[in-house]
Nucleic acid binder design. Structure first.
Lengths: 417, 417
DNA sequence: CCACTTAGTTCAGTAACCAAACTAATTGCG
DNA sequence: CGCAATTAGTTTGGTTACTGAACTAAGTGG
C-alpha cells in the first residue's frame, strides 16, 4: 500500500518512490544484517530496483553497508546492509503536570539522551511552556551526544485532548491549557533558534504511549494494542492495525469515564466512572487513607501515596491488598469492555499502574476471563508496560521514525560525504 | 493514498494507475454531472491524465458521457460525465435464521432487485445453505432485471463471527454453523454454475450494515459510524475512517456482552450484559410478558411480540412505556461506553430497534448526554436506521462497489463496443 | 583453471505521470 | 462578421521509476 500520499490524493512517481523507500527501509530494519538480494526477495522488488533504492537510502544516511556476508557454500557473498544509526536523531518532548521530558533516539530507536526538568506547566501557561520546550529541543539538538546527526523532527506529548492533524492542544485540564496552537508556536520558536522546516508532531500521551509500545515495548510489532495511562486520569491510546484511533473529533480512547456502576461520585460530576473506581486517586484513597487528605492532591503526594501503597502491599497489609484487588476488578471490567469492542492483541498498563501491577493484574485478568465474550479473551494479553517514565516522549520520537518507515516523512537532506 | 496494493507491498505503475482510476471514479460519483476539467481540478491530476483515466473508465463501462454542459458565460462547454449505471451489477446475499435475502444494485447503488426466500439455515446446515446461496446468485445473475450487466462480485452477510479475509464462518451460534469455509465452497459452486473467477466477499451482518449506512444510509459518507444490530443478539459494526474495525481475531464490535450491571443473568452465562438488559428478548419479556413464554423463543414469536409492543406503546400502555424507557436507558449506557471509546459521528440502530426507536431513543440520548465525556457527545448522532430489512445484503453489494471505488477491485472486463 | 553459483550493476524497454502546446467550441464585442 | 477571450479537451515530448535480461563480480569445488 502506498502510504506516502495524502489519503485519497493522486498518486504519482514520487509516491511510488517514497512508498518503496519505506518498504526497503522497513525490510532492512527487520532483517539486518541482510544483502540487497535478500531485500529483493523479501519485498518482491527486482534487484535493480532495490539497488537503486538502497543507494538513495545510503546517500541520505539511513542505511549503510557493514561488510561482506559470511561466505556460503557457493556463490559471491552479498554486501550486508544495516540501519545507519549514526546519522539521524529524532527528538521526543513530553509535557507533564510538574516536569518536562526530552528523549532523543537514533534510527534504531535506541536512546541517545533522556532528561527530565522540573516545570510547572499549569502555573507557567502554554506560551512559557512552548518557549521552554523549544529551548529544550534546541539544547538537545546541540548536545554533543547528538553530534553530527540530522534531526528527523520533534514531537510533543501532551496529556489532554489534542487535535493532532492541526497540532492544537484543544483541552488539557490538568495543565489548564485550552485551544493553544502548540505546533505553530513551536514552529516559530524553533525557526528563531535555527531549527527551521522541522517536521513537528503533537499528540496526546496515551496515543504516543501506544506508539512507544508498538515500536519498542516488550510486545513490539503488535498491530492492535491499547496503552492505558495511569496518571491522574485514565486514558487509552488505541492502535488499530498499527494506526492511532483518534475518533471523529479527537475524543477516541476516553475510557476514564465509561459508566460501570451507580457509585461513587467522580471528579467529572458523573457517577460510577471507571476513573472513580480504579483511578489512582481512588486507589490510594482506599489503600492508604491515612496518607491522603480529602480534597485535591498534588502529583508529588500521589507519588508518595503510591510508594506507600506498594510498601504496605509488599508487607501483606490486608486492607491495602483488598483495596488493590477491588480496583483491579473494576479495572478488569473496564478493560473487558474495551476488549469486547476492540479485540486488541494486548493491553499495556502504564503510569502508576506499573508499580501496582503485581496486585492489580490478577483480579483484572479474572474479570477479563469472566466478561470477554471471545474465547481465550480473543488472545488478548494484559501486562504492565516496561517502558518507564519516558514512554510518551519515546513514543513521540518513535512516531517520527515510524513516519519515515512508512514513507510519510521526506528523507532528511543527503550528506555531501 | 494508494489502496490497491496489498498493505505494505511494493508499489509500481499499475498500483498508481489503479489508485488514480479509483480516485477519478469517486470524483465522478460525487460530482456528477461534471466535466473532465472539473475532475482534474478536484483531484489535482492534470487534464491529460484525467482524459486518459476517463477513457479507461468509459471503456470498462463504469463512466459515460451524458452530453454537453449548459454553456457558461464564455468558453467551450465541457462534456459531462456521470457513472454508467447500465453496465454493472453487484450482488449481496444475506443469511438469516429463517430466510435468505438477495439484493442486486447498480454502480450508483440503486436497487435493481431484492428478494427474500424462506430458508431454515440452522436446520439445513451450511453445505445446503451454500448450495441454495449459489443457486440464488446464479438466478439473480440470469434475471432479466440484470440483463447485459457485468457482475462485479458476490457478497454474503452472515450473522456471527466471520474471518473475512479467509472467507470462513468461524462461529454463527444462531445458525449452529462452525468453521465453515463459505467462500471456498461458494467459489466451487458458482464456478460450476458458470460464474467463475468472481470476487467473493464474506462478512458479518453488523459490519455490512455499517457499510450500507456509510454508502447509502441517510447519514451516508459519515466516515466514523457504528451500526447496531438489534436481532436476537446486539452486535456493533464499526467503521473507523471508513474501514471496518474487525479486531485482531475478528471479535471487534462485540458490544452485546459488555458488563453494565450486576444483574440479570444473560443467556451467555454472565451477569449484567447489555444484551440481557436491552436485547430484544429482554425488552419483549418486560414489555409484553403475557405474550412471551419462559424459555427460548423463535424468530417469528419475537417479531409478533415486537409488533404487539409497538401497538401497546402507541396506545400509551404505561407498563410497556416503562419497559421501553428502561431498556432505552441501558442501551444508552452501552452506547455511551462505545462513544467514549470510539468517538464516532453517528450510531445507527438497526433490526428490531427500528420500530421501537420512538420510545428507545429519548432515554438513550439522555444517558448519552449524561455519560459521554466529550462536549456535545463529540457531535455523535444516535438515530434509527432507515434501510429496512435488506441492510446487510445491500451493505455487501455496496462493499463491492466501495472496493471498486477505492481501487481494490480489478476493473470488470472491457466491452468491445 | 574452469565450471558453477550467487550478488549486484548496467541498460534498454515500458508505463504512467506532468507540462506545455495545440485544437476545439463557445461568448462577447467592435 | 470576424476576432479576441475563455474554457475544454487532446497531442506531444519529457521525466521518473519500475521491470527483465544481459552482464560483471566474487566466491566455491573439482
Amino acid at each position: 500500500m502506498l502510504r506516502g500520499a495524502p489519503a485519497g490524493g493522486p498518486a504519482d512517481f514520487q509516491t511510488v518512490r517514497e512508498s518503496n523507500l519505506g518498504l526497503v527501509l522497513r525490510t532492512v530494519r527487520e532483517r539486518a544484517p541482510c544483502s540487497r538480494a535478500e531485500v529483493a526477495a523479501a519485498t518482491r522488488l527486482t534487484k535493480a530496483t532495490v539497488s537503486s533504492l538502497v543507494a538513495d537510502l545510503i546517500a541520505h544516511g539511513l542505511v549503510r553497508e557493514i561488510g561482506a556476508a559470511p561466505a556460503r557454500r557457493v556463490g559471491r557473498p552479498g554486501v550486508m546492509l544495516a540501519l545507519d544509526e549514526r546519522r539521524i536523531a529524532a527528538v521526543g518532548l513530553e509535557v507533564n503536570v510538574d516536569y518536562l521530558t526530552v528523549v532523543a533516539v537514533d534510527l534504531a530507536e535506541r536512546e541517545l539522551l533522556a532528561r527530565h526538568v522540573p516545570f510547572d506547566a499549569g502555573a507557567a501557561g502554554p506560551q512559557a511552556a512552548a518557549e521552554r520546550l523549544a529551548a529544550l529541543a534546541g539544547a538537545t539538538a546541540a548536545d554533543p551526544l547528538l553530534a553530527d546527526r540530522t534531526l528527523l523532527g520533534v514531537s510533543v506529548a501532551v496529556p489532554g485532548l489534542i487535535d493532532s492533524p492541526a497540532g492544537v492542544v484543544t483541552d488539557a485540564p490538568n495543565l489548564r491549557w485550552r485551544g493553544f496552537p502548540l505546533r505553530d508556536r513551536l514552529r516559530e520558536l524553533l525557526g528563531a533558534a535555527g531549527l527551521t522546516g522541522m517536521p513537528l508532531l503533537v499528540d496526546n500521551d496515551a496515543n504516543l504511549g501506544a506508539v512507544a509500545e508498538y515500536r519498542s515495548g516488550h510486545l513490539a510489532h503488535t498491530l492492535d494494542l491499547v496503552y492505558l495511562t495511569g496518571e491522574v486520569g485514565i486514558g487509552a491510546g488505541v492502535l488499530v492495525e498499527g494506526r492511532p484511533l483518534r475518533g471523529s473529533t479527537g475524543y477516541g480512547g476516553e475510557i476514564g469515564h465509561i459508566p460501570l456502576a451507580r457509585d461513587p461520585l467522580c471528579g467529572c460530576g458523573r457517577r460510577g466512572c471507571l476513573e472513580a473506581l480504579a483511578g489512582i486517586h481512588a486507589i490510594v484513597r482506599r489503600a492508604v487513607p491515612d496518607l491522603v487528605p480529602a480534597g485535591p492532591i498534588t502529583g508529588e503526594r500521589v507519588a508518595a501515596a503510591v510508594a506507600a501503597t506498594v510498601r504496605r502491599a509488599e508487607d501483606g497489609d490486608p486492607g491495602v491488598r483488598r483495596a488493590l484487588a477491588e480496583a483491579g476488578e473494576w479495572l478488569g471490567r473496564g478493560v473487558a469492555t474495551l476488549v469486547n469492542l476492540l479485540n486488541p492483541q494486548a493491553v499495556l498498563l502504564g503510569g502508576y499502574f506499573v508499580p501496582l501491577a503485581p496486585w492489580l493484574l490478577p483480579p483484572c485478568a479474572a474479570q477479563l476471563d469472566a466478561h470477554v465474550i471471545a474465547p481465550e479473551r480473543g488472545g488478548c494479553r494484559v501486562e504492565a508496560s516496561r517502558l518507564g517514565l519516558t514512554a510518551a516522549a519515546r513514543g513521540g520520537a518513535a512516531a517520527l521514525v515510524d513516519a519515515l518507515d512508512t514513507g510519510r516523512l521526506p528523507l532528511p537532506a543527503p550528506r555531501p560525504g
